[in-house]
Every structure is written in structure tokens, then in C-alpha cells.
Design a protein around this nucleic acid. Structure first.
Lengths: 208, 208
DNA sequence: CGTTCATTTGAGCCGATTCAAAGCCCGTGG
DNA sequence: CCACGGGCTTTGAATCGGCTCAAATGAACG
């Protein structure tokens, strides 16, 4: 029954495994689709390893990344019967999958999740609607840092394009702003996807 | 008990009336605060007449209007214990007020509301993050039109500043875009706050 | 009729985009 | 081990959409 619900294209990438009791586990290679716009909403997901991007497209290809999801975080619940968004694995990702029954049993938890999802989206509205490029990047780094446990070192699983589409900017602008933060030694780049935050306070104050 | 929970500043404006059974009714004059950032979340609201804006402020005064609410629509539920937003009556507004008990009894409905709230916010992210000024205004007008019943005539209870802060633009840009739509006779203005949509299809196609 | 506030219009500027090219990283194969 | 190719990232130069500042117009109200 689970296999039948999976889109065929993914059969090769998904390795569902029944584990003790409540949920299944699925593995997705980097870049693989988890669900698409228009798919029926039948499950929701918890990241166990890896990272996920959820996004929407305009007809001309412009993309808005609505959220990223990291280990421990849940996603996939939406209003209505079918998805309005795409979800993809950013890196190799394993997910715990919850079916409808489990969603109904946990509808109390789901309310809290929906409310925090709404809060995140609305917070993000402020960032995108009213903050300039530096502020957006700073807010992004701070948010990511907190969600990765608050250490000084920060691993970015997503590309510059993903970040740009999340923040409503272009890759070039993202890159330029990161360079500027580097020049002011607010951050140091080990490589393009690994950042050390040298001045957390400075970064925070840039968020406004 | 209800009166005690009301901030003093509003006592003059709020006329709570116990009505048959489940909820109270409160009236707010134009511009009056319904709740503020930091207030405890104790109730949620349904607009019966008028209109409401929900927004957040940055320390330097920049404002992001997160949502507008019209008759029939509910608002006021948020994650956590206290509000992250301000809510104000735009025009003279009457609200049905639901207390905690009613919210718990209706937690099933609340889930649906939270999910659609999240969907709205995420849709809005796409508009603000990836669409140009004309597209934003067009999307705004179309959305408002649908929520007011889909007629050709459209009443805007909110100011240009409210619209600008909702769409991440300035008043001047809003005004200029509206003028441009007028010049292309997509719309006609009876007065600044009353719009007739002359070419709904054209308006739709501007949304992308 | 004057005051006040909201809206519109104009001119110049600026931050972010666009377009273009170079640099860098990494896996592949000779 | 190095050359090659392809993807991602960075950097540069020029453009442009929306912003800022400023002023005019319009509407509401005493």
C-alpha cells in the first residue's frame, strides 16, 4: 500500500522500511523530489538526516523557497487536499514518514506545528518585505545557526541559488554580501559552504 | 474577568457584550489596537464588520503588514504564549471574541485555520519575494476581490501606506502602479479607496 | 475658508539586478 | 600525476526598478 502511493520515478531512490511501530523511513538522494505541487497530501515527514527545501515556482521559472528543514523538523502538512509546493532533498536525506492515521492521532501536535509554521512564514515575510540584502543574509545565518545548535561553525547544505531564492535575492547579491561580511571579519569561510561566525553580536545587530 | 483582561487604554473603545452562549462581541474604532506584541494570547477573533490589519515592526519603524482580515475571517491565534504581532482595527470594526475554552473545544477547526494561515503567508512570500511591483498590486487586488465576493467593484478599507507595508513597497510606488493600471484602463477609480475592475482577465494575467 | 491628512506626481538617486567573464573545486580519464 | 570538463561561486561593469525627497493636488471636516 505504501509502495503503491509512491510516484514511480522515485521508486529507485526511496527505500521505505517498516520500523518498530509508528512510521516508515525513506531515503532520498541529493536533488530528489519528495512531493510535487498537485500531489495529494497523504503523509507528513520528519527529517532524520540531511536537509530539505520546500518551494514554489512561477510560470516563468522564478522560484521562491518557502522553508528549509533540518534534522528533527517536520514538514509536509498543508491546507487542502493537495500540495501547493514542491519538496526536495538538498543533500542525501533520510525521513521518517507519517501516514494519515498517525497525523490524525497527533492532530494536537499538528496544531502546534502548523502554528509555528505560520509564525516562521510570517517572520520571513518581515525579512523579505522590509529588510535589505545584508539584513536578510544576517537573519538567515542567525536563524540557521540557532537551528543547528548555536555553535560558531555553520554548515550550509544548500547552494547560493537556494539561499537567493529563499531570501528573494540573486546568487550574485548573496555572494557579494557574504564577501562583505568576510571583509568586515564578521564571518570566515572555510569553504563556500562552511562558515565560522567570528562576531555573533555584530551579526545579530545586522538583523535589526 | 473579561474587563480585567482588557488593556486600560481600550476600555473606552471596547464595548464587550455577552451574547447568547459561546462568545462576546467587541467594537473598535478606526485605528484602535486589538492586541499588541507581547500581550498574552488569550482569545481569538472573528471579524463581523469592518477590517483588521496584523503587522510587525522593526526597531527603526519599518513595518510589515502580515495580513488583512475581513468579515467572516478569524485571526489572533499564534504559536507560543504571547503575541508576536500587533492587530488594529482599520475602520470601525466589530469582532466576535472567543476565549481559551472555546479555542480548546474548537481545536480541530483551529488546525484548519492555522494551516490556511500558513498557506496564505507562504503564498504571500512568493509575491513579495519574487514578483515586481505591478504583479504584487495585481495579486493584491485579485485576492481582495475574491475575498469580497468576486464582484467587479472593490472597496479598499486600508490606506496606501497599509497596502505598501503589506506588499513590501512604498506608498509612492503603490500610487504610481495604480495610476498605470488606470491608464491602461484595467481599473477605474471612483475615489482613492473604491476601484472598479474593468478587465479582470488582464488583471489576472498580470499576477503571473 | 483654512487646516489637516491622504494621495498623487515629479526628479534624481541608489541598491540590487543583469549580463558577462573569470576563478575554484572536484571528479574523471588519460 | 596532470589535463580536462562541468558545476558552483565569485567578481566586475552597466542598467534599471523602486526608493527618497520634495512639492502639488485632493478630500474631509470643523
Amino acid at each position: 500500500m505504501y509502495a503503491a502511493a509512491q510516484p514511480k520515478e522515485q521508486a529507485e531512490d526511496v527505500a521505505p522500511t517498516q520500523i518498530a511501530g509508528p512510521h516508515l523511513v525513506a531515503t532520498y538522494r541529493a536533488g530528489r523530489e519528495i512531493y510535487a505541487e498537485g500531489d495529494l497530501i497523504e503523509k507528513c515527514y520528519q527529517v532524520s538526516t540531511g536537509a530539505v527545501r520546500v518551494y514554489r515556482l512561477l510560470s516563468d521559472g522564478r522560484r521562491q523557497v518557502v522553508s528549509f528543514h533540518f534534522p528533527g523538523e517536520m514538514f509536509g502538512f498543508e491546507a487542502g487536499l493537495s500540495h501547493c509546493f514542491f519538496a526536495e532533498a538538498i543533500t542525501e536525506t533520510t525521513l521518517a514518514v507519517f501516514g494519515r492515521r498517525q497525523m490524525q492521532e497527533r492532530s494536537r501536535d499538528l496544531l502546534a506545528l502548523a502554528l509555528t509554521g505560520m509564525a516562521r512564514a510570517q517572520q520571513h515575510l518581515l525579512v523579505i518585505g522590509r529588510q535589505c540584502a545584508v539584513e536578510r543574509i544576517a537573519a538567515f545565518l542567525v536563524d540557521l545557526c540557532e537551528r543547528q545548535g548555536g555553535g560558531r561553525q555553520l554548515r550550509l547544505p544548500m547552494s547560493r541559488q537556494d539561499i537567493a531564492d529563499y531570501l528573494g535575492l540573486t546568487i550574485e547579491t548573496v555572494s557579494r554580501v557574504v564577501t562583505k561580511l568576510k571583509e568586515r571579519s564578521v564571518i570566515v569561510l572555510r569553504d563556500a559552504r562552511t562558515i565560522d561566525i567570528m562576531k555573533p553580536d555584530a551579526l545579530h545587530s545586522l538583523c535589526n
